[in-house]
Amino acid sequence: MASSSHWERGWDVTFVSEETTTETDLTALVATYSALLFRVAHSILRNRAESEDVVQDVFLRVLEHQLKLPAIRDLRVWLVRITWNLAIDRRRRIRPDQLDEPFAESLVARTAPADQALSDARQVVATLREIERLPQPERHALLLSAIDELSITEISTILHRSESAVRALLFRARTRLRERLEKQESLEKGKSA
């Protein structure tokens, strides 16, 4: 469950005065946004069951605040933001190793030899660990950029930053991550040699 501060913050940013008065159909919201919200939660949690729980929590909150929905300008960004905050809150209670290793194993080819699959899975886990070690703004920008449906404008709205700042964060995240992975790789080569 997210803290109230996150929830209220979500309202504060996207809540605008009465512009649209159409009644929002919750079922249509579920059909439209559940897959996107699942991917958003999964980019943080990397666990399908946990991500699904987060998406369900999001729609429960939407049900609780259904009266305010007509006043929300960009419902899509608002929902993504709630999902993002709920996933971050849930992530704090879970050890990353519990989530990253099964996800990495799911990415490894089943047809590959066992030693190759183990090596690939280890590389994926190392990459995920380095992503988690990034500074928080860079990490969030990088993970949100992985979701195709979100534009830079939407990411900037979610992260409370300008578009240029988001682009700079993405560039720095990629650069830092690349450098760390190269350094790690050279260390492993030195050990094996």
Binding site: L26, T27, V30, A31, S34, A35, F38, R39, H42, S43, R46, R48, E52, V55, Q56, F59, L60, L63, F103, L107, Q123, V124, T127, L128, I131, L142, L143, S145, A146, I147, D148, R174, L177, R178, L181
Partner: peptide
């Protein structure tokens, strides 16, 4: 390549089947 592999995997994650029904039932 490793970064792109991870990001691509996150990007192409499919929602589990029956997600909408379970959400609707819980709502």
């Amino acid at each position: 390549a490793r970064i792109d592999q991870v990001l691509h995997a996150l990007r192409t994650t499919e929602a589990p089947s029956g997600l909408e029904q379970r959400i609707a039932a819980r709502l």
